[in-house]
Design a protein around this nucleic acid. Structure first.
Lengths: 353, 353
DNA sequence: CTGAAAGCGCTTACAG
DNA sequence: CTGAAAGCGCTTACAG
């Protein structure tokens, strides 16, 4: 039995109401050119009126082309295996969405190397990419790339650190300020009144905008807010290799013995390595991330606390957010702050990224 | 231009090779009857040889029927809002997979009421259901239901507690034994040598197979393994209302003052309520779950530690596992133990289910 | 037990 | 600027 006209669904019903062919409807839906403003407006009105939701099965079946998501994050380096976890999460999400015709293409840069970041960016062909998941480690270089994405209307998601003020789809990672603030809260329990505390930033890139600075601010503000009298020293080390770090540490620690040290990133293991070699009384040591190197020192008792923020989940959820948006136009929360997990030698064996 | 025969894909290629129609191929793929063994075997061999993966877009487009997943979990009760979290996770997953033609039907039973469990089970029409997500609170009653599922070949996933020995697709929840074990580890730091510790089970159903017993075993075994000399008392309270619990507590605590109490489930708030009213020295109190009631007592310092195991994630991941299996024949890990999070008044505001 | 045909709701050339 | 038709890879009656 033939369907009544009024029961048509989808493009056919739209076409019928607009008195055009489904081809024209398709053109309007995809914002392709070659449609008069008049018919375009008419069709759009009907789409709105019907609250038309395209059938994704039909769409993906008819259009054989794959969607490509580019992943721009650091590669695992000799210094740290931190970036293994996000990649695992991304791979899992990638496997789950691959049946929907999505291909994930990783572009991995050296974590300390702006040039390598730019090289990877150059390799991405934006005409072949429908979404980007990135860790914007280098702020200026990222800004440039993001402009290109926005002009092509390619959606992008930040993980691990964000750059406020951009129109990213969403962000999955720590609340940097808050994680510094919580570290200070922990610190409060561990140092006595007026004992000195040292903040260490170890990174090639350190400036006021930078991610590490936001953690430092959180840390300092906790001390301010709670009127803690311990003086805060601070040192920036812009060469990340052990030789440089140990030299810088030696200089300051010989002059200024401190009760506790707060390292603003995963490089805490480098500091631990130095402390282990000195026989002085060991200061309390707090740092970031569940890396292989850090775990060793945590279990040895050199590192006291690690703050960790679900790196694996950042990758997984970040990619899923991209998928939800590109395939289903579904947007979730913009800022997704990971829980601030406190890892000690006692609970580290149970930790799940 | 006509395609070369060898380029056919999917059912058409299978049909060509087997010298049958695609209708017959479809029958074999779906194990429908009415195909001679001979052709069936031939087709199955070809499917295997080609490693044929059905195109889910085409499948879902052609077959207009919805898939239904039944959710069988407790409803939020007056006594505890624990089950709110899993339901939220389930709803989120449900929203994400609804574009794929999946409908989620909740069947919520009273957490303390076997009859209500059976009533909900009776409401589920197994001929209309393609998967089940359940919290098997009542062991015998669940066993019966599971048998029905297995005879109909309906896949099912456990959350929150499992029943070992069944052929569930997977389990998302605590490692019950381990969470008892970790609780004891915590306890070790908090009680002095030879001080008494009290274990409290509050539940209508308590027996050797039961979930609570497995936590208790873990707890006891930690003490054994580590030769901790504190004597362990234990009490089972099978009426969960405050009147009964407080009476039972009064009886034992008047006779036997204890340094610490371990409540094996979320009912710890009932114990806290009692302790708050007595003016005796307060024992250390450890229990389970991030419920509204428990949080109040945690912040007041009556409850010292809450063990929490991501109830929201259990629901989300459980439903996703069902979806992955039913739509993509993808199976993950069978046992998915949630991390054992330790919540204190210090970090409770940062906790994410 | 098996086949031939229609149709699911889109996209993609191609024709005008 | 627009339309008509073929086709994506399945499932679903229906016919025999």
């Amino acid at each position: 039995m033939a369907r009544k006209d009024s029961e048509l669904t989808g493009v056919k019903e739209i076409a019928r109401r607009a008195n055009v062919s489904i081809g024209t409807v398709d053109r309007v839906i995809h914002n392709r050119k070659g449609v008069s403003k008049k018919t375009k407006d008419k069709i759009n009105a009907i789409i709105k009126e019907l609250d038309y939701q395209p059938n994704i099965f039909a769409r993906r079946l008819a259009s054989k082309k794959q969607l490509v998501f580019a992943i721009l994050i650091p590669k695992v380096s000799q210094e740290t295996n931190y970036w293994e976890a996000p990649l695992l999460g991304i791979e899992q999400a990638g496997a789950e969405i691959s049946p929907y015709g999505i291909t994930v293409q990783p572009y991995l840069y050296e974590v300390n190397d702006k040039k390598s970041f730019l090289e990877q960016v150059a390799r991405i062909d934006l005409d072949q990419v429908q979404g980007v998941l990135l860790a914007p480690s280098f702020i200026e270089e990222s800004a440039h790339f993001i402009k290109a994405l926005e002009s092509k209307k390619i959606p992008y998601v930040f993980i691990n650190s964000d750059i406020p003020g951009y129109n990213s789809l969403s962000y999955f990672g720590p609340d940097l300020y808050q994680s510094g603030y919580l570290s200070a809260h922990l610190m409060k329990y561990l140092v006595k009144r007026k004992e000195k505390v040292l903040i260490i930033n170890i990174s090639q890139e350190i400036d006021d905008q930078h991610h590490l600075s936001r953690k430092e601010q959180g840390f300092r503000n906790y001390f301010k807010d709670h009127k803690i009298e311990s003086p805060i020293l601070k040192i920036d080390i812009q060469q990340t290799d052990y030789a440089h770090v140990s030299k810088a540490l030696g200089q300051i620690l010989r002059k200024e013995p401190v009760a506790a040290i707060f390292v603003t990133n995963s490089r805490v293991s480098t500091v631990a390595k130095y402390l282990k070699k000195t026989k002085d009384t060991q200061p309390i040591l707090i740092g970031f991330d569940y890396t292989k190197e850090n775990l060793v020192f945590l279990k040895e008792g050199i590192i006291d606390f690690l703050i960790c923020q679900k790196p694996r989940e950042q990758g997984y959820k970040g990619l899923m957010a991209l998928y939800q948006f590109v395939l289903h136009s579904r947007t979730g929360e913009k800022n997704n702050f990971m829980p601030i997990d406190i890892i000690t030698s006692e609970n580290c064996d149970f930790y799940i990224n």
